[in-house]
């Protein structure tokens, strides 16, 4: 039995995997709150027009704002983002979960797809 508590205080217990525990939830609350707002088409439009201003209105940290405007998924995860919410942000730019997978693994989209298919 392995416990989630303090997982990220040291190193990843499961390599390449971010466990969204209480510590991450505290860190990422505003980032996730912003992404949750993207359930509304009007908010998606507002964000797209002025991304930084929209981030500021949710009190994101400077680091989080950079990660958001760079669409840097790993960085957003490290800063407390939860993938279910982040998908609403990346969806605004038409990124699919395969695009996210390619970005995070450093593969091209075709390479990432081939990697998925190779596990069949």
């Amino acid at each position: 039995m392995i416990a989630a508590h303090s997982v990220q205080l040291t190193k990843q217990l499961i390599p390449g995997t971010y466990i969204f525990d209480g510590r991450m939830a505290m860190k990422g609350y505003n980032l996730n709150r912003m992404c949750y707002s993207f359930n509304s088409a009007e908010n998606r439009k507002k964000f797209k027009a002025f991304p930084e201003a929209y981030c500021h209105s949710f009190n994101l940290t400077r680091e989080q704002i950079h990660a958001v405007t760079d669409l840097d998924v790993l960085r957003m995860l490290q800063l407390g983002g939860n993938i279910y919410y982040l998908a609403k942000l990346t969806g605004i730019y038409g990124m699919t979960v395969q695009d996210l997978g390619a970005q995070q693994t450093g593969l091209s989209l075709d390479e990432f797809r081939a990697m998925l298919a190779s596990q069949a």
């Binding site: 390599p15 995997t17 971010y18 790993l74 995070q104």
Partner: peptide, 13 residues
């Protein structure tokens, strides 16, 4: 399946 992290794309048949 795994959507997030460096291990994204992980599948275990």
């Amino acid at each position: 399946h795994q959507l997030d992290g460096e291990r994204a794309g992980f599948i275990n048949k």
